[in-house]
Design a protein around this nucleic acid. Sequence first.
DNA 1: CACTAAATATGACACAGATCATAATTTTGT
DNA 2: ACAAAATTATGATCTGTGTCATATTTAGTG
Lengths: 193, 193
Amino acid sequence: MNIQQLVDRGLKIKTYTKDSVIYEPGMQPRYVYFIKTGEVRMVTVSDEGKEFIQGVFKAGQHFGEPALLINRPYLAFTITNKDTQLIAVNKEDFFSLIKNEPDFSMNLIQTLSQRLFYKSMMLEELANEKADHRLLTIINYLLHDITEGENLKVTRQELADMTGLRVETVIRGVKMLAGKGLIKTVKGKIVKG
Amino acid sequence: MNIQQLVDRGLKIKTYTKDSVIYEPGMQPRYVYFIKTGEVRMVTVSDEGKEFIQGVFKAGQHFGEPALLINRPYLAFTITNKDTQLIAVNKEDFFSLIKNEPDFSMNLIQTLSQRLFYKSMMLEELANEKADHRLLTIINYLLHDITEGENLKVTRQELADMTGLRVETVIRGVKMLAGKGLIKTVKGKIVKG
DNA sequence: CACTAAATATGACACAGATCATAATTTTGT
DNA sequence: ACAAAATTATGATCTGTGTCATATTTAGTG
């Protein structure tokens, strides 16, 4: 099932401006959201206001399935990173997608597996590893998605919010890793290759 | 799909004694494991030998799907907590289960969703929260599975390995939480109610 | 019931990373 | 090309939890 097919079925496209909140912790889930254009981040926020990035979702992807499927209130905020168009698919329709479209079902299983893999990796890092190790792991993970010579389009703050560290620690850590030759930086940007 | 049906199909039951390693990090996954009897833990281990418990799986459950489904080497060890009987289902059979048994497929999706939920919760805790908060969160999570008056059958070491803390910190933390009346303990055991 | 092993407990000290303050650099918008 | 904003950078402290050492209590075994 892709976006076009959902549109063909007559589902409405909702438009959100950058930094809109789609849902927040405690809300009872009613939809799965398919992203037509734009990008969202899923973040949990501590009492002291510190953010942790649970995931980032882009055009063509969907989010919010787990809470809907196990019928539990959301744990996280989901917030648009850019102007974003979403299609909200209700519970009934989503369940029938799973039941009636084997390809979609298989795809969903693999998507969930991938997310589990990432979270397992990060849990190990947060539970057991120090700042430098955490940073190197995420950076290498993110470098997979880009080509030689390109640079990572993430700020130190975002790296901090993915690793549970503070910006200052990330800044010092990245500098140290670059010094040791474990990563390459150009004008502060982390570069692949 | 349940264990009996797998046996009926002629799949072999393999027996492992307590503390046997089923698979370890780096190995290429070939099977999904269904547990007939016993219990296994999935743990990642840091360079310094510190364990983190990624999950515990009991009779009737299966494990090892994500790595197989996305075709990536294991991140974790899986080790039996007791004498355990397993049925190893190969990739082909597992994929055909998903394709041909809609109920199994739906069930798997919900299982994966539940695991994601747990991991998201723990990531937030490890990234943003201090020892006491982490402890209270896990303890409350574990208390869900037992009835009033019963006590948690986990050691402080196991709590430590689930939260990324050290035993001593868990011991002090549990004592503190009990002192504040946030949890109840009897002879050191954490009791529900 | 005694003996042993495992789990819980407690104190003293060390240290990675948080926190706070302030500055330099790079990016963005007009 | 310039100003404002965002990001990166750096130094000085503070602090929660790790580390180490040793003791006490509880559980398990013949």
